[in-house]
Structure formats: C-alpha cells, structure tokens
C-alpha cells in the first residue's frame, strides 16, 4: 500500500466483489460469547449439511454483535436479499435453516430475530 489512492481502489474492488456475490452466504458469530454458547458445533453442523446437500454456499465468521443472550447467532444472506439473523441456534435447527431458507428462500419463523439492511 503506497498511497491513499491505492487503498481506495482496493476498497472499491472489495465492495464490488461483495455486492455482486451470487452465492448464498451464511455468517456465524464466532466471538468468545458465541463459541461458549456452542458456535463451533453449529459451524461444524452447517458445513456438514452443506457438504451433504452439495450446496454452493459461502460460510463466513464474524465477531460479537452484542446480543450475547441470543448466541449462537447465525446470519443468512441470499443474493439480493437482506441479511437475516437467527438466534439461539442449536445443531437441531441447522437443517431447517439450510433447507428452508438457504435452499428454498423461506425464512424460518420461529428462529428469526431481525434483518440487517446493508
């Protein structure tokens, strides 16, 4: 990084990449609070489920979003849609979220907490 212009160029590049993501994205809260509440198991189950169904999905992590009470938190973002946050996600809920939301586009009522408009 030699100059501010170079930084700004990179910024636009990354933003473009993120904007026209054509894959569903699953984001897991992996702060200490999330991990303590079982986020690692949830992550593993999500990867299993994706593998089993041979889905083309991006899985990312993020830090604590502050709702520690509702950890583990899992967000699902379908291309062109808002990011939906699910709370108190257990490994039993994963197939429902993946089949219902990621594959079929239906938000899972009982687990959804909020949406995040980018």
């Amino acid at each position: 990084m030699e100059s501010l212009a170079e930084l700004r160029e990179l910024k636009e590049e990354v933003k473009d990449q993120q904007a026209d993501g054509d894959k569903p994205e699953i984001i897991i809260g992996m702060g200490t609070c999330g991990i303590a509440a079982g986020a690692r198991k949830v992550l593993k189950e999500i990867l299993n489920e994706i593998d089993k169904r041979e889905l083309d999905v991006t899985v990312n992590q993020t830090g604590c979003i502050a709702m520690c009470e509702k950890e583990p938190l899992v967000d699902v973002r379908l291309p062109g849609k808002s990011r939906i946050t699910y709370g108190n996600v257990g490994i039993d809920n994963i197939s429902k979220i993946i089949v219902g939301h990621v594959v079929n586009g239906n938000i899972v009522n009982e687990l959804a907490i909020a949406k995040l408009n980018d």
């Binding site: 990084m1 501010l4 930084l7 700004r8 990179l10 910024k11 990354v14 933003k15 993120q18 984001i27 809260g29 702060g31 990312n60 992590q61 993020t62 830090g63 604590c64 979003i65 502050a66 938190l73 995040l116």
Partner: peptide, 21 residues
C-alpha cells in the same frame, strides 16, 4: 460499528467499511 458485521480475520472486509481511510 463493525463488530458482528465483518469478518475480523479479513483485512479487506475492514477496508471495504472505510478501514484505514
């Protein structure tokens, strides 16, 4: 502002959100 939104292990994510500007 970024906690819980970006991937903390990706510097590009931070830069995309005005990081290091």
């Amino acid at each position: 502002a970024n906690c819980g939104y970006i991937d903390p292990e990706e510097i590009d994510d931070y830069i995309a959100n005005d990081g290091y500007e």
